[in-house]
Design a binder for these strands. Structure first.
Lengths: 218, 218
DNA sequence: ATTACTACTCACCGAGTAA
DNA sequence: TTTACTCGGTGAGTAGTAA
């Protein structure tokens, strides 16, 4: 309805329309059109002046804001080349603690702080994907642009490059999914880092099901 | 609904969702979400596969087209600097026939053909605006970009520049509204030219009410 | 001609529930 | 756990009509 009004010009200017005309445009009765105008006015989405020859209608700022919001959201969806986010489900399990060893390396830590915006808790949360669907999605995810963490050397050895994606765990906790680039782990396993100790923060235990929403880069 | 599905990623990929989850996102019951998915599938706006753990949903090409259409239309409305069209109402009256004299001038005719895409019938349809509202809108219209017809000279005299706007008369007949730039006519009068003789084409007589939809330039 | 009120109806929504 | 059926109540849309 708001959209139809905008379409006939009420977005930019005051337009004079009869409720009958609007009703035809919208495929409803004149009475319904009239009532809807009254409702839009109550929401203060339009300014409305009733005259003998029709209604003078103009979208208010909040009415315009409604359409602009819808427009921006559609723009993100329609114009994006790839999904904005992807959701996984899996169960938590305990690894061998080697994740902690890598995360603690200053060569990685500095880049995490700079590129992810947080100092990771020294340890990773391991998640095993439960369905074929999730594994397929994971493979698809790998083809989308990520935050790149460069490899480095210290006195004793070389550390490989890593890809990260920002994530939201169980719709609450921020963190990042990390993929080691060289070593090819089991594709059913996700490794998560976060500023906090997630097992405490979200009271997660082994074998518990969790939801991971992964955000790709624009 | 289609929009909500797109928002969770079904625009670009197949997503797995439960009807319960969708229902919460949309603020309706699980049953309604389920039924709406079935309806969207019937419209072939989505592809739908029901599994034991939820539905695999992806927008079909026609579903995407729906959102893309809405997006493009909103884009025109939201991003336009000025109204796309303005509508007038007025009554037809007979002028002194001087309109025909000007329209017949080759200096104008050539430009009309080139810039409006039609060879005008030698005569103008005069319309008198009936309400203050229409006259205000007419004044506003003058500030929006128009098709410019240049002035010229022939052996005997000078002809001034003219502004045109494409129009639709009574939602049917194409034509153009013309404004002489120099001479300042009565601002309650509109002069229309068209490829056909409008009085015959639309069976218009003097004192009859007509609707003029004027399109501004982007 | 308008707008918009009061009644009324019917389609849509959701509770219950089966599979 | 899921999805999705039936069914009954309710609110959005419409007809009639006043102003």
């Amino acid at each position: 309805m708001l959209y139809k009004l905008a379409e006939i010009g009420a977005f930019h200017r005051t337009v004079k329309v009869s409720t009958q005309y609007l009703a035809e445009k919208m495929g409803v009765s004149q009475q319904t059109a009239s009532r809807q105008l009254i409702e839009l006015e109550k929401l203060s989405w339009i300014q409305r002046n009733v005259t003998a020859e029709g209604c003078l209608i103009r979208l208010s700022d909040s009415g315009k804001a409604q359409l602009k919001t819808l427009y921006s959201r559609l723009k993100i969806i329609v114009e994006a080349r790839h999904p904005i986010s992807m959701t996984f489900e899996g169960v938590v399990f305990s690894g061998l603690g080697e994740g902690a060893y890598y995360v603690k390396q200053d060569g990685y830590r500095k880049q995490f702080m700079e590129k992810l915006g947080f100092d990771p808790f020294p340890g990773t949360l391991n998640i095993r994907l439960t369905s074929d669907y999730d594994m397929k999605v994971r493979e698809e995810l790998e083809s989308y642009p990520a935050i790149e963490i460069e490899g480095f050397k210290n006195e004793s050895r070389t550390f490989g490059a890593v890809k990260c994606y920002p994530i939201l765990l169980n719709n609450k906790a921020k963190g990042a999914l990390i993929f080691a680039l060289r070593t090819h782990y089991d594709s059913a396993v996700l490794e998560i880092i976060a500023p906090q100790f997630l097992r405490n923060q979200l009271r997660i235990r082994d074998k518990q099901k969790v939801k991971i929403e992964v955000f790709t880069m624009p």
